[in-house]
Design a protein around this nucleic acid. Sequence first.
DNA 1: CGACATATTGAGATCCATCAACCAATGTGG
DNA 2: CCACATTGGTTGATGGATCTCAATATGTCG
Lengths: 188, 188
Amino acid sequence: MDSYIERINSFIKNLDKETLLALSNISSERKFKKGDLLLSENEICRKSYLILHGIARKYYLNDGKEVTTELYFENDLAVSFESYTLQQSSKEYIEALTDITVSITFYEAFQEAKIKYPKLLALDLMFAEYYGMWLENRLFQFHTMSATDRYLDLIKKSPHIVQFVPLTIIASYLGISLETLSRIRAKI
Amino acid sequence: MDSYIERINSFIKNLDKETLLALSNISSERKFKKGDLLLSENEICRKSYLILHGIARKYYLNDGKEVTTELYFENDLAVSFESYTLQQSSKEYIEALTDITVSITFYEAFQEAKIKYPKLLALDLMFAEYYGMWLENRLFQFHTMSATDRYLDLIKKSPHIVQFVPLTIIASYLGISLETLSRIRAKI
DNA sequence: CGACATATTGAGATCCATCAACCAATGTGG
DNA sequence: CCACATTGGTTGATGGATCTCAATATGTCG
C-alpha cells in the first residue's frame, strides 16, 4: 500500500507536458505562519494544499475538545475530504503546526481541468484510492489495537512524527488521553 | 453525505446509452447461497459485486477472530478495497449472510472500459469518494464514541441491520464484545 | 429429539479516562 | 534580567467502561 504513493508520483512525473502545464497553471505557492488556520469549521474547503515544507494537521472539535484526524508532512495533500468533495461547509480545521510552504490548487479550477485532461481525473482517483486505503488502515488500528500498540506502530512507521509534533496532538491523533500516552512512553 | 449516493445513482441513470451498454456488457448476474464466500483471504479481488438482493459482509481474521468491516445490503458495492485497487492478495473475506444475487463486474474489463469511456472513470472516482466519506464517518465513531453510542447510532441510521444480522456480527462490526453488546441492549 | 449456533447473565480483571497536583521549558512585559 | 504566565509533560489516585471466562439459556435445524 505504501508503494502506491510512488506509483502516484511516477504517474505525475510521466504526465504529458500539456497536462503538467495545465496543472501548474492552476496552482500557486504560499506560506503560512505556525498557528495559522488554512481552513476553519463552517468554511467550504475550496482549495487543496500540497505541503511543500513544514508540518500541518487536520482536526475537529468534539465537545469542545480537539480531535486530530491527520498529520501532514512534506508532499502530503491536505484537504477536508468531505467538505472538499461535496463543497459543503467543513467540520474540520486545518492548522499549520510550523511555518509552512504549500502549493494551493483551487477546487473549481481543478474540476474544469479534469474535464479537459482526463489524466487529471485518473490522478484524482488515485488520490482518493490512496486516502481510502490509508483510512482503512487507520480504522483497522482503532478496531483491533490497544493504545500501546497504536503508539508503537506510529513510532515504528513514522518516527519523525514524535520528534516534531507535541504529545498532546499525538495523543488526540491516537484517540487516547495525554496522560495515558505519557504513561505508555514511560513504560518503554 | 448520504445524498451523495443519490447523486451517484442519478449520474448512472443519465449516462449516455453507449456507456451504459459498455457497462452492462462487462457485468453479469450470479447467485450465491448463504454462507458462500465471494472472496477469501490470499485471493486477489478481481471482481466487484453489486448486491442486487440479500445481505453480505466483509471481514478479516485478527488473532483468529473475525472482525467485520462492512455490511452490504441491496445496491451496495462489495469489494475488498485494497486488494481490488492494488490487485494484490486480500486480507479480507466477503461472505453471503443470506442467499444473495449480485451483479459481477471484472476489474480488468472495467479498467479497460474506463479508458474508452471517461464517464466510467468519473463514476469510479465517485465510488471511491463515497467510500472515503463513509470510512471517515466510521473512524469518527471509533475515535470519539462509546460502545453504547455506536450501537445507538447504528440502530438509528440502519434499523434493518439489527433485524437481519446476528448480534455476534454486529458486535464485531462495532468493535465490541458480544457480551457488552448484549448488556447494552438489555439496558435500553 | 439432539446438536450446534446464538444470546444472556454474572464475577473478576484490565485498560484507560478523569481529576488534581506538580514540574520543566519558554517567552514576555516591566 | 527578573518575575511571572503559558505551554507542554509527568505522576498519582480513583472510577468507569469494557473484556474475559464461565455458566446458563434460547433458538434452530436436520
